[in-house]
Amino acid sequence: MASEGAAARGLGRGFPADRAALVIYLMAGYPDRATSLAALHAAARGGADVIELGVPYGNPLADGPTIAEAATVAREGGFGLGESIALAAEFLAEAGPDAPPVALMTYLNPLMRMGPARAAAAMREAGVAGVIVPDMPPEAARPWLAASGGIDTVFLAAPTSTPERLATVGSASAGFVYCVSTTGVTGERTGLSAELGGLVESVRAHTTLPVAVGFGVSGPEQAAAVAGIADGVVVGSAVVRRQDDPFAVEAFVELLAGAVRSARS
């Protein structure tokens, strides 16, 4: 993998030209290492286009109870950023060249504690395509960006972002732009905001990258609805809730993939 070029390893290749991408979030090390590895393979088989691998952290400010509790279990099993990168490496090596690209979703402090240079080197070595750091806005990203050559850094756009902020986020991002569907933390919600379409359009106006929508997508119907609006659909808590059973993950991802593929983009 280390011999492949950055473009081949980038997150962008997970976004098909003709439809929305399905981005599946899993928590590294939850409920244990072996099961989370099996869940990664299950998500890939089920039709995930991009995998977002959550790094367990002790103060997950942007996450709701499902992901926060999974993180606690994973941390009790000894999982942190280093273990998560190693897990990604093992998955990518086993899954081969057709594996969906993997983005690590980590909070900033584990990245700083390991050191940007050391973390970036380990990620490159593992074949990790990108990172999403919810508490690292573009203005605070310089130390990481200076070290992270070859790794896409995805920044987040929110419903509260001003046009100036969207321009900053859009131009700083690589791979895709992560559009947060609603104010609040991650977690399943029953409905989608009526303003989502407008929000996605505003984000699109400030970037040439694909725009993926996450936070609150709980099932196939919502996934299809989002796929009709955006370039990618992120499903997290609803997958993590099933993560202790890789078969259930595969079946659920298949449902989501079918829904996303049936939607007009």
């Binding site: 400010l61 806005p137 947060v180 609040g184």
Partner: peptide, 12 residues
């Protein structure tokens, strides 16, 4: 110091 928070609250 600085500002290390989710984008949602940056405008606020």
């Amino acid at each position: 110091g600085g500002t290390f928070v989710p984008e949602t609250v940056i405008p606020a």
